[in-house]
């Protein structure tokens, strides 16, 4: 459990020294962030359930994030606000994941 936390802290420190993202890409980045958060929580949940698989976790992390960014980008091109859809869907999943993690912790 310590490795993911070390990773996140390292990432935050590195991110503070990186240049700013241009305003045009902020929406895309936020969607990717939601997808990444969802994958991270999904990984914790899987670990708690005892069926964690490294490959599934890592592939899910990148594929989800990239797909979300791609969809959002298409939406901007087409004039459809897919951004909100992505944020809503990932938001719902994050909440369910958190609920399940909480329950698993309480059951223990």
């Amino acid at each position: 459990m310590i490795y993911p936390i070390i990773g996140v802290i390292l990432g935050i420190i590195v991110g503070f020294y990186l240049p700013l993202v241009p305003q045009a890409y902020v929406k895309l980045l936020s969607v990717a962030l939601m997808a990444a958060l969802d994958s991270g929580l999904g990984g914790i949940r899987a670990a708690k359930e005892g069926c964690y698989d490294n490959q599934i976790f890592i592939s899910g992390f990148f594929v989800n994030a990239l797909l979300a960014v791609f969809l959002c980008y298409c939406g901007i091109r087409l004039g459809i606000d897919l951004y909100f859809v992505a944020v809503l869907a990932f938001g719902l999943r994050i909440f369910t994941n958190i609920a399940i993690i909480r329950r698993l912790y309480l059951k223990k």
Partner: peptide, 17 residues
Amino acid sequence: MVLVCMILGIMLSTQFK
């Protein structure tokens, strides 16, 4: 695992900034 979580952290802080 550490690498993936690092990416998550980078995203978090850039988004915050």
